[in-house]
Amino acid sequence: MIKIAVAFLLLLLVNALPAQTKFEREYRIKSHQVPQATKDFVRDAGLSGKVKWYAEESLKGSSIEAKMVAGRQKLSIEFDSTGMIQDVETEISSENMDAAVLARINDHFGSAFNTHKIIKIQESYSGERDNLTAFLRDGSKRNLLTTYYEIVVKGRDASGMNLYEFLFNDRGDLISRLLIIHSNTDNLQF
């Protein structure tokens, strides 16, 4: 029995060598670790409340993200590693979307999937720093910003039921579609 156990373990060790995987890592950082420019942006945008800072590293590079709740909305502000603003994202409900744009997006889902359900909608704004801070302060200058919709959808097609992340512009034109790969659940299942 011991020989069987040793052989089994050796088999496992051989297969334990990690394969190539996409490198993406996010971790919490302290406010004193972020560039002053990021904190200046949060201040100039008139945002109060607790800010959670995250650093994200991927093959595309590194970025800094500020997550907070403003009013009742979850807000996520992304900066590059020097503190330059990249975009602002806020989670919204389908009721807050332009009806014509939402209809166009739902038509796309209807043709892409047999059945689908929208799980999450994030509205993303990018543009000049001053326009973004003005928008966050009082909702002004929205027309000067570029708006995208990042939508997480549960959809069933010929390949089965999967989770996808779609990116649409403000007219409802599809920009990209990504399959969301769930992280391994073996340690929760077995």
Partner: peptide
């Protein structure tokens, strides 16, 4: 019932500790 909580960030990434 099992709960897995990352100790860094909002999800468990390679090179990170977690509690279960």
């Amino acid at each position: 019932l099992s709960a897995e909580v990352p100790l860094s960030g909002q999800s468990v990434d390679p090179g990170e500790f977690y509690l279960k």
